[in-house]
Design a binder for these strands. Sequence first.
DNA 1: TTGTATGCGTTATCAG
DNA 2: CTGATAACGCATACAA
Lengths: 345, 345
Amino acid sequence: MKIAKKDSINKKITLTDVADLAGVSAITVSRVINQPEKVSDALRTQVQKAIDSLGYIPNQHASSLASSRSRVIGVAIPSLSNIVFTDVLRGIYEVMGQAGYKVLLVDTHYSPLEEERMIRTLLSQSPEGLIITGGDQTKACQQFLQKARIPIVQIMELLPDPIDMNVGFSHTKAGYDVTAHLLAQGYERIGFIGARMDPRVQQRMQGYKSALEQAGKYEKNYIATTPEPSSVCAGGELFKSVMALTNGTLDAIFCANDDLALGALFEAQRMNINVPKDLAICGFNDTEAAAYVNPSLTSVYVGRYEMGVKAAEMIIRVLEEHDIESKHVDMGYIIRERASTQRLA
Amino acid sequence: MKIAKKDSINKKITLTDVADLAGVSAITVSRVINQPEKVSDALRTQVQKAIDSLGYIPNQHASSLASSRSRVIGVAIPSLSNIVFTDVLRGIYEVMGQAGYKVLLVDTHYSPLEEERMIRTLLSQSPEGLIITGGDQTKACQQFLQKARIPIVQIMELLPDPIDMNVGFSHTKAGYDVTAHLLAQGYERIGFIGARMDPRVQQRMQGYKSALEQAGKYEKNYIATTPEPSSVCAGGELFKSVMALTNGTLDAIFCANDDLALGALFEAQRMNINVPKDLAICGFNDTEAAAYVNPSLTSVYVGRYEMGVKAAEMIIRVLEEHDIESKHVDMGYIIRERASTQRLA
DNA sequence: TTGTATGCGTTATCAG
DNA sequence: CTGATAACGCATACAA
């Protein structure tokens, strides 16, 4: 037995309901919502009244199906607990929100396999564009990414062979530059600590190595890393490890990010090691705490929010069939010199 | 003129394409995907082969439309740059991901009006459940939230009159307890600094006030706040303000969160104020940096990840028509006493 | 400016 | 276990 067509309590309100109430056809209601300028003032207000009084909310699924426009952008990031990605996300949300796109976000947990599954999920929502992290996708993933035929931006790092568009900066170069800077400051025994060891951290470490090797100052035991996530605590532990490994002979440490750097600094203070007199500490990402701690930490600024904005804008421009200046954008970075790497005369 | 039906390059692959290739009907393919146990082994593998070879990805919009099950959960949080919310998010994503739900996330920028708009957006995606922050919704928003007839969890705070379900803790009580603790430690002139001043910070401040008033130690100029976002920097500034206001007579400060507390601590160090000898500092949220800085900061632990998990689980239980123990859950909190509020003998 | 017919890709319902 | 048919709610194409 069917329930009464109109007044049944649970029934969701549809375009047709609104049309009936307003005494127009469904398509007119549709127009009032999507192209109001194509409807006469009289009808428009009349329909709008019906919409309001019924509390009508359009069904996006039906809309997407009919129009093959989902207004959804998929975003895949490796972690929600890393400020690096949430900053980028903010930029993406800002731009996409303004432009009327919904963001469907997935967390890949730094795993290409998980990423493949998650991107499948994204694709099943018929996103009009995709923003994904790095270039570490599985073969299978790359394949259906190609087939998707939608604009895709790979963010965070500079990729040699992007799937489509690319916004990021060179972590290798940044690692190199930081180390070179430390060398230029007169530091000679420069250690490195890193955690998680995702591709980008590896690249920074590679840059560090190159710089030291080039200067003839590279030593294997200058490095301590862990596959565990980054944290202040891990920074302290890694710091102790590398100091032990080197019998405390290091005079500088390059930390793969600011959390580690804070941990190293706090631990150094507990060990009564004077920073920067006895030891220089350099972080990465230029987070707020690093800038305000005593002594303030030298770090590497990266325009993360701006990177998110840029990626989002590129997608939108392509979707609106505008040209884009370039499919590959280097956001660069800036080494922020602070007290922690400044020898006291 | 129509393009060739099958091989046209841009055509997306549909259920029918797979059915044709496998030599079965569309509904069988649908079953292979959604209820594999209802299809014979032979057909199932045959269909699966077709799916793989075509790289078929189901269209969720069509599926949602036909089944009125979207497998989407909407989440609204006030900010993406506050670790408090990203921690909760992690919990939500973890559980929802496992259970096969997509999460549609929106950022309300701490604005009820924006929240109303954003929740409209969420609703247009026919989510099966909603997780929203706090109880500060507009009247209009509350109304269509009611009409949505889906499970809704309001998180972060304990609400007197929740729309549906509620998971959180009492910020008022927490603020009170922290202050009482400080009093019990023998501190007498206890200041408060807060930023953003969203409802939850206001509640903490209210608790602080109550405790001081009750002890007869409340003074208006013990308080410095700003509507600006919280940050380490803001913490330093507010600290300077409140110290100026009170001519440096405070012997303790309760900071509305750990960022502010770190800022206050760093600033105190620069001013050569000894913490905790001259001044106690207490934070809120028990973040990692607060626990590892020197001296370690007393703070209030809150199970944020667990709160996200709980909220997600409640939604899922309701959706799967299980009973839930209670619609209202108090997650509680724990005051973590550390060096920053311990007078040296 | 407004309306009619049709189809988007999938699933519910009911038959076989 | 498998299939035919009719929705789901909306937008496109075309007509009026």
